[in-house]
């Protein structure tokens, strides 16, 4: 039995990773057609970085992800602290709403936000993207921080209060250091979600602020573009680094 289950696990992992390996290998392929191996080359990376619109979209995406992750981490952390510490009316409703945001299909969130922005007359661009991205990242930050807060010694904040610290001082000097690893992990998760999002961004972005996923989307809809292999490989390396960083932060904090 162990033999069988082991080979089954291996098979599924193989299927999960074959496309990624193919992508990476083909990003160094000199052949134009993209199906046959034509020797090693870095030409697709070169043409990628010579494409100004692409580089601009990359910077736009990075800035958007950076700001969206930061804002959602701040709001998400405060929300988690409030849910953990305070009793207030509507606590269940707040929890429920975050759960609904996390579960609801992205496309539903996307059209509802598009409707709101048009109603308000907000020009679609960076601001609309930021508001939308913070909204879908928020619940993930909240659960990451909540997970850290459960099982945390309740006597610490009480001691701080007894020693005369105000709520704000106690949060700053006791709670924030405790949840720091979760904040970093939540930030990285938000960053990745933002960099990856296609569905919501398709609806709430405008021509004034083109971001990477939408640029890739318009490239891959028709035919094969070897530049995408190169770009995909770069994104893969980048997110792998982020993931390892977040795992390292979380595992170090457990010790």
């Amino acid at each position: 039995m162990p033999w069988l289950s082991r080979s089954y696990l291996a098979l599924v992992y193989l299927l999960l990773y074959v496309p990624i390996v193919v992508l990476v290998v083909f990003s160094f392929n000199d052949s134009r057609t993209g199906y046959n191996w034509g020797g090693f080359s870095l030409r697709w990376y070169e043409s990628l970085f010579n494409n100004h619109a692409m580089v601009q979209a990359m910077w736009n995406s990075l800035w958007l992800a950076l700001t969206a992750a930061t804002v959602s981490t701040c709001i998400g952390a405060l929300t988690a602290l409030a849910l953990h510490r305070y009793r207030f009316r509507g606590k269940k409703a707040l929890n429920g709403m975050l759960f609904v945001v996390m579960m609801s299909p992205e496309i539903v969130l996307a059209i509802s936000l598009l409707g709101l922005f048009l109603l308000l007359g907000l020009k679609l661009g960076y601001v609309s993207l930021l508001l939308a991205h913070v909204t879908f990242c928020l619940p993930f930050v909240v659960i990451t921080v909540m997970a850290r807060l459960t099982g945390f010694d309740e006597r610490l904040p009480e001691a701080a209060r007894d020693l005369g610290a105000s709520d704000f001082t106690m949060t700053r000097t006791v709670l924030i250091p405790v949840i720091m690893p979760a904040l970093m992990a939540g930030w990285l998760l938000g960053f990745t979600l933002s960099m990856d999002d296609v569905v919501v961004s398709t609806f709430v972005s405008g021509p004034s602020y083109e971001i990477l996923p939408l640029r890739i989307y318009s490239m891959v809809r028709v035919g094969l573009k070897p530049e995408v292999n190169a770009l995909g490989t770069l994104l893969l390396v980048f997110s792998l680094a982020m993931l390892m960083l977040s795992q390292w932060i979380l595992s170090r904090s457990k010790q």
Partner: peptide, 15 residues
């Protein structure tokens, strides 16, 4: 894979 761009992964299947 979950942390890797889903568009890019879909495109890889196309290859």
């Amino acid at each position: 894979p979950f942390w890797t761009n889903s568009l890019v992964r879909t495109y890889a299947l196309k290859l």
